[in-house]
């Protein structure tokens, strides 16, 4: 696509507001896993995964094109909301996991419970998740 072509594509994009695109993009990004999950339960996992890839790629292309335009899609309020959401998820999984796993380990020491391989895997995954947070936190703190 030549420069004029690229410019006219961006002009087309700028016909609508970031608000309109924000809602549309959210819909596309949420539709992708929804279609996959529904297809999986309907017994069409492969087709569902293919649909997920197509819908997600479409959303990603739209997202990247919008970022090149002057349409404001992501601003400081979006970033603050995202940070809050990340904090909430970390607190739920990090804090919830801590309570659950420490309780299970305590019960195991007391002889009331024995961890299955699946629970051990979950414990390792949770530990990796929390440690990743710790590494990121330390890296950001050293620069702050």
């Amino acid at each position: 696509m030549n420069r004029d072509g690229a410019r006219s594509s961006i002009d087309v994009l700028e016909r609508y507001s970031g608000e309109t695109y924000g809602r549309a993009l959210l819909g596309v990004y949420l539709a992708a896993p929804t279609v996959w999950l529904v297809s999986m339960y309907a017994g069409h996992a492969a087709a569902g995964f293919a649909a997920f890839l197509v819908i997600f790629a479409f959303g990603l292309a739209m997202d990247l094109a919008l970022r090149r335009s002057s349409v404001v899609l992501y601003d400081e309020r979006y970033e603050r909301i995202s940070r809050k959401a990340s904090d909430a998820v970390f607190n739920v999984y990090g804090g919830g996991g801590f309570v659950v796993f420490v309780s299970l380990i305590a019960l195991e020491f007391l002889g009331y419970y024995e961890m299955t391989p699946r629970v051990e895997t979950l414990f390792l995954a949770w530990s990796a998740f929390v440690l990743s947070w710790g590494v990121c936190y330390t890296a950001f703190k050293s620069r702050a």
Binding site: V72, D75, R77
Partner: peptide
């Protein structure tokens, strides 16, 4: 106004409704 200061309309709306404190 949102376009002039490079934010979304929802951000201006949230500030006006005192639901969001700007940077």
């Amino acid at each position: 106004l949102a376009e002039a200061v490079d934010v979304t309309r929802q951000t201006i709306n949230s500030i006006e409704r005192e639901r969001y404190d700007p940077s």
